[in-house]
């Protein structure tokens, strides 16, 4: 099977990789590039643990072929913090203790960042709908939602 040769941008850096035609973006991130922040919970689009941002749109890494990444810009959880400075979503998840096993956390971080990028002032209902594609088996969601709402306030420069 001929490998695909792909040129793409990941977290702002040009990246070149070879992958099998049937490998997903998630497979490539984890198994080819060693970016293991994105998780595979289901592989069927239901859990959101594999969430990445592709050309500005929140997507499931498990439902996209690596070959489809050609020429696209991908942001993964590894690209959300700025150097050592955590993104407000990450900081607030820490402060709220909005995780237990944390398997879902990278997906929530990426999904919440995508939400706040396009709507820095979401209502709680909007945030809950936006995150409907991210499942958490442990926390019961309230702490996650609180963290996301507080992070949005931080991004707007308001004290929460």
């Amino acid at each position: 099977m001929a490998k695909q040769h792909v040129n793409t941008t990941i977290n702002g850096d040009p990246v070149e990789f070879l992958c099998e035609p049937d490998q997903t973006v998630l497979d490539v991130l984890r198994d080819v590039l060693g970016l293991t922040g994105s998780k595979e919970g289901c592989g069927t689009g239901d859990c959101g643990a594999c969430s990445v941002i592709v050309d500005g749109r929140l997507s499931c890494g498990c439902l996209m072929l690596g070959a489809e990444a050609e020429g696209r810009e991908i942001t993964t959880v590894e690209g959300i913090a700025e150097g050592d400075k955590l993104h407000p979503v990450q900081q607030r998840i820490l402060e709220e203790g909005a995780l237990q096993c944390a398997f879902c956390t990278p997906g929530f971080v990426v999904a919440a960042k995508a939400l706040i990028d396009q709507n820095p002032d979401p209502t709680e209902t909007e945030a809950r709908y936006w995150l409907a594609g991210n499942l958490c088996r442990c926390t019961g969601y309230d702490k996650i939602i609180r963290a996301v709402m507080n992070a949005a306030a931080d991004v707007r420069g308001e004290a929460a």
């Binding site: 689009g45 439902l63 072929l65 070959a67």
Partner: peptide, 26 residues
Amino acid sequence: VLAGGTDLLVQLRSGFVEPDLVVDLK
């Protein structure tokens, strides 16, 4: 043919479809 892949990728991964060729329309 492949559009968004939200049905096709699930079917590929489960072995429900095993195409020799995938043509991405995007």
